[in-house]
Simulated scan of single mutants.
Amino acid sequence: MSDALTPPESSRPTPQLRPPDFRPTEAVHPGHTNLDQLELPALVQALADDQLGAVQAARAAAPQLARAAEAALLGLERGGRLLYAGAGTSGRLGVLDASELPPTFSWPETRAVAVIAGGERAIRHATEGAEDDEAAGERDLLALCPGPDDVLIAVAASGTTPWVLGALRAARGASTLTIGLANNPGTPLLAAADCPVLLDTGPELISGSTRLKAGTAQKIALNTLSSALMVRLGKVYGNLMVDLRASNAKLEARALRLVMHGAGADEASARAALSAAGGQVKLALVSLRLGVPVAEAGRLLDQADGHARLALGEQ
């Protein structure tokens, strides 16, 4: 006899099974299923070789990165900021990119601002649960007072991180241009961003560990994007890093070499020009190339919005 409290089999609701994770970065890598049994040389070779997928993904994304850079330049030329948002490895890579722009290109620190899920502590200590708080991502981004000339670079390997999606939503609400970097196709981050950039790296060799080639692809993409922006903003002459901040002996020597090379000057002349220019490579270079005092070189650079080639009359 059947239990009267138990409905007939045909009338019971069908169990709702959770669909398998669609994200390729979470899939099990089909190669090297015996990774833990490899001899150390073979293990290192396998891990290094798998990183080639990061380079391939970044190269495939080059057209998307170019479109993102073109869109970002409009606001940055009006004084906008580069804002970064990410969680975990992606967040730390955003912090790294923002941190490297001031010494490399003399980009103002106030115009390269990164936020990470979990706050400053998360840079050095894992705070994985913070990435699930979408409302916190929105609040953290709004605390930066984003505006229409700013650019948000939102990074998430999964493309589904709630905290990052919250930050992106806040940016869009402030009419801030949004660039989304994700390692999985068809994800909410790419769908919501003004400029989506897919870094399709597929499964990780250590399955699910997106600090590997997914993270490498993000680093390449961030390097490429921010460097392209700095070149277009006049921070580079030819391929010389003429806006570096010489803050130690190594960089002072580098600044001297750049002036010597860019101006075709001997060491003594380059040193004198750098001294007169207060250590500013671009200013010293223009002064030497045109044979004018530093003050006149500065005036010409101001007229050229900081572009050395334009100040030199080469455009």
Rank of each mutant, 00 (worst) to 15 (best):
W107V: 07
G118W: 00
F105H: 11
G159C: 13
H125K: 07
S175R: 15
S90G: 03
D133I: 06
G94M: 10
I153L: 14
E134Q: 13
G159Y: 15
F105Q: 15
L177N: 11
A136Y: 04
R111M: 08
S99A: 15
G119N: 07
L82P: 00
D132M: 10
S99M: 12
R92S: 07
A112V: 00
R121P: 03
V113Q: 13
T104F: 14
G88D: 03
L93F: 08
L93V: 08
W107F: 09
P148S: 10
W163L: 00
V115W: 04
Y84V: 06
E128N: 12
E100A: 08
E109R: 12
A157E: 03
G119C: 06
R111K: 14
L93E: 09
A87R: 01
R121S: 10
A117S: 10
C145Q: 14
A174F: 03
C145N: 12
G180K: 07
D140Q: 14
R169E: 13
L141S: 07
T160F: 02
S99Y: 07
S99E: 11
L82M: 06
P102E: 04
E131I: 00
V95D: 05
T110S: 13
T104L: 04
F105W: 15
P102Q: 09
L101K: 11
I116Q: 13
L168I: 13
E138Q: 14
E138W: 13
L152S: 06
L144D: 05
S106L: 04
A122R: 10
G159W: 11
A143F: 01
A143V: 01
P102C: 07
E134V: 08
R81D: 01
L144H: 09
T127H: 02
V164N: 05
S158Q: 10
A114Q: 04
R172G: 15
E138D: 08
A135D: 12
C145V: 09
A174G: 12
T178R: 00
R172V: 00
P108Y: 02
G79H: 03
S158T: 11
G79Q: 05
A154Y: 03
A112G: 00
D149A: 03
E128F: 05
L96R: 12
G118N: 03
A122F: 06
A122W: 05
S158Y: 06
E100T: 11
V164A: 02
V95K: 10
A130L: 05
E109T: 12
A143R: 15
A171S: 13
A117E: 04
A114S: 11
A98R: 07
L144F: 06
V155L: 09
A85T: 06
R92G: 09
V95H: 12
D97G: 13
D150E: 10
R139M: 02
I179C: 06
S106N: 14
A117Q: 05
E128D: 14
L168W: 12
A170H: 10
L168Y: 12
D149E: 14
I116H: 08
A170Y: 09
W107H: 15
W107N: 05
W163G: 01
G129A: 15
R81G: 00
L96C: 11
V155D: 03
P102N: 14
A171T: 08
T160N: 11
R81M: 00
A135M: 15
A85G: 06
A174T: 06
G80T: 04
A122E: 11
R169V: 06
L177C: 11
T176D: 01
V113W: 03
A87W: 01
S175H: 10
L168N: 09
V151P: 02
